[in-house]
Amino acid sequence: MPFALRRSALDHCATREPTRLVSILQNQMLFTDGTTNKLVGCYVEASPEDVVLVRVYGNKTELIVDRDNELKSFQVLHANGCAPRLYCTFQNGLCYEFMQGDALGTQDVRDPTILRLISREMAHIHAIHAHNGCIPKPNLWIKMRKYFSLVATEFTDQASNTRIQQEVPSQALLEQEMVWMKEHLSKLGSPVVLCHNDLLCKNIIHNSKEGHVRFIDYEYSSYNYQAFDIGNHFNEFAGMSELDYGLYPSREMQLEWLRVYLQAYKASTKKGEEVSDRELETLYVQVNKFALASHFFWGFWALIQAKYSSINFDFLGYAVLRFNQYFKTKPAAMALQIPE
């Protein structure tokens, strides 16, 4: 997991901000953001704007990323116009097309125009048919259980041991909450669809010239609950390096987002475009309940990173913030009721 502070290593490739480059050596650019991989942009001197991206997987990433599933998702998304071309793969990485545009920030995702583009693009992805016509199953609980099994209870650094004992909920409590979530959330009736599962702001590329957005970084893509993917995105309004949950979208903003989403999703699945108040409220409730699972998922992820990553980022502190937000928002989320 060498390099930088975010889960995405691609966002600075998309923006090509020169201050983010480690080096420019003739026809090679090395990018620094990302907590999982090393990314190099390659180009010929005559056409520096025509970049091909080479991603080399980081150390121990096989613990948290299913690379076979990532490739399948990459290919399916490209076939449906949602991802760049994948040129080739090799034992510890892959090579693919550069995607033009600007990576978004926490304020950009709140812009009414961009907000609608994001909701429609997510609807487009969620409407993609399952591979080979199979009935998809959500991988949320399997993945979360795997991450939980990898969470470290002891660190070499004594200060980290003290912090995890004092600030992180006990393993018994974490497991209790995980079991409760599976029991409760699985009954909400959220459809299982192809999800991105990691739609933080910097994983959204806005091409202002063409008037669209595209999502990047498919390492966590899989079939999952529709409401989880949306709830996870709403959590990411808070950012990552400096979390501010005051930026979590208001009910009004969510309802605007969800109405556009439902119109696009229903149109893509040939179920009309009319959205009833009941459908809108149902999705609102599902999304805000599944947002709880998002906090746990990335909390576990951060605890694993705290053990294995060598980058200068407080993963342990990030995990604490995610678990704290879970317990803070759980009462209000659980008070929400799906309309009769």
Rank of each mutant, 00 (worst) to 15 (best):
L262K: 04
W180I: 02
E177S: 07
E236W: 00
Q75H: 07
F31K: 00
P339Y: 02
W298T: 01
T162V: 07
H295C: 02
R278T: 15
A332V: 08
I311Y: 08
I338P: 06
L5A: 14
L63P: 03
Y87Q: 05
W257I: 08
H12C: 11
R116A: 14
H233M: 06
R85L: 15
L25P: 02
L53K: 00
R110T: 09
V213F: 02
F315N: 00
Q100E: 14
H206A: 13
E242K: 13
G189Y: 13
M334G: 01
D229Y: 06
F3L: 10
A9Q: 10
Y218C: 08
S119G: 03
V260E: 09
V65T: 03
E167I: 03
I114F: 02
R214T: 04
V320Q: 11
P48D: 05
T89P: 15
S309Y: 07
K137C: 12
G93M: 10
E17S: 10
R145Q: 12
Y220S: 04
A172T: 15
G211P: 01
A302C: 10
R7K: 11
T162W: 11
R322T: 07
I164F: 06
E175C: 08
Y245G: 09
A264T: 09
D244T: 00
C195L: 05
L336I: 01
N92E: 13
H206V: 07
C13R: 11
N59H: 05
S170V: 01
C195N: 12
T32D: 09
R120L: 11
G41A: 03
C42S: 11
F234A: 08
D229A: 10
K146F: 06
I311T: 06
D198R: 01
A319W: 04
W301T: 03
Y223P: 01
L10E: 03
P18E: 07
R67K: 14
L30G: 04
L292K: 01
I24Q: 14
Q263V: 14
F155N: 12
L30C: 02
N27C: 11
L77T: 02
C95T: 10
M181D: 02
V44G: 06
Y87C: 02
N92D: 15
M334Y: 14
L194C: 06
H206C: 12
G246E: 15
G239S: 12
A172R: 11
T113G: 08
L258N: 10
K187P: 05
Q28I: 02
K146D: 12
R85I: 12
M144K: 01
C201E: 11
L5T: 09
L77E: 07
H295I: 08
P249S: 14
F90P: 09
L86T: 05
T153R: 12
D198Q: 03
A293F: 00
L25N: 08
F74P: 05
Q226T: 02
L243C: 14
W298Q: 02
H126D: 06
R6M: 11
L117R: 07
I204V: 15
D217R: 09
A46C: 13
V151G: 08
K137L: 09
